[in-house]
């Protein structure tokens, strides 16, 4: 017997002993509870039938419990249980490792994107590399994290669990799309401030600094307007805007599904219920209008 086998054997013995002790404990507890369920006195007499039923259930449960643990306590099963238990830390390690790798990836992206920050970008260029960080993050999210939210759910509450997971997923995607939109929308402010800084430096060097600070504001707002005009016409802005809107709608729909589920348990109609009703009313009204027009035309 090598060291590993010895260790395994030792672990099995400990587990087996613990199993035996716990079975003994529950046996004695069952015996005591059994005593408690024994009819004694008038009140107990009245409750005898339900008490018997409860005792029966208790004994049956205990029997299953014992049976299950005695099977588990067999050496070969204990060994496979121990092996199975080893899987859990492995799974955890893998998950943490994946998350860590993703974090490192985002960090690497940030570092590589931050290199050109000190460089000047032309006014018409809104494809600044640092904006790609949102897409990189989205890709990483979809590749590494989203799958956890797509794990199929089981049982009676499967639908509700899946809705909750979808909500979390859509919230994450909408958050990313919104952040990308806000970042892009901020670019003209950043650029215009950069330009103004250069201008002010030039003014100071040339000794032409305006006496009225409002002149600087007017120059800045003009530069800012120019940058926004360029940005708002760019295909990238349209794409980011539409992407944000699409994600907003998906997030909203996922959130509404959760709310509908919650409202289903209380006597409040949902938008979905009301929409069905409104559609029927709309169609009926239209039909009534059409018929009354026909009737009017006939009577004329």
């Amino acid at each position: 017997m090598n060291n590993n086998q010895k260790l395994e054997r030792g672990a099995e013995d400990i587990f087996g002993n613990w199993m035996q002790a716990s079975m003994d404990f529950w046996n004695s507890m069952t015996g005591r509870h059994g005593g408690m369920f024994d009819p004694a006195g008038a009140l107990a007499q009245a409750a005898q039938s339900s008490s018997d039923q409860a005792e029966k259930m208790w004994r049956s449960g205990n029997k299953m419990f014992q049976l299950w643990f005695s099977i588990l306590g067999e050496p070969e099963n204990l060994s496979s249980f121990a092996k199975g238990a080893e899987v859990l830390p492995g799974f955890m390690t893998q998950t943490v490792q994946q998350m860590w790798e993703s974090f490192v990836e985002v960090h690497k992206q940030l570092l590589s994107r931050s290199t050109p920050l000190g460089q000047k970008a032309p006014a018409s260029d809104f494809t600044q590399p640092d904006l790609n960080i949102f897409r990189t993050w989205k890709q990483i999210y979809q590749k590494e994290f989203q799958k956890f939210l797509n794990v199929p759910q089981l049982g009676l509450t499967r639908v509700y669990q899946e809705r909750m997971q979808r909500f979390v997923d859509e919230a994450n995607l909408f958050g990313t799309a919104l952040a990308e939109f806000v970042r892009l929308f901020y670019v003209p402010i950043e650029k215009s401030l950069d330009i103004m800084q250069t201008k002010v430096e030039e003014m100071i060097e040339a000794g032409e600094f305006p006496e009225d600070p409002k002149e600087l504001y007017l120059q800045w707002i003009k530069v800012l307007e120019g940058h926004y005009t360029t940005l708002l016409k760019s295909p990238q802005y349209t794409q980011v805007l539409n992407n944000m809107l699409q994600n907003l709608v998906k997030f909203r729909n996922a959130r509404n599904e959760l709310i509908y589920d919650a409202l289903g348990n209380i006597p409040i109609p949902t938008n979905r219920d009301m929409d069905e009703l409104y559609q029927e009313i709309y169609q009926l009204k239209k039909k009534v209008r059409e018929l009354s027009r026909k009737l009017e035309a006939k009577s004329n």
Binding site: K233, T238, Q246, V249, N256
Partner: peptide, 20 residues
């Protein structure tokens, strides 16, 4: 007009289906 540019790719169906 910017509205003409922006609405070209707008998915009116998803917006209306969601918002009413």
């Amino acid at each position: 007009g910017l509205l003409h540019v922006w609405t070209r790719d707008m998915d009116a169906d998803t917006l209306v289906d969601s918002y009413g």
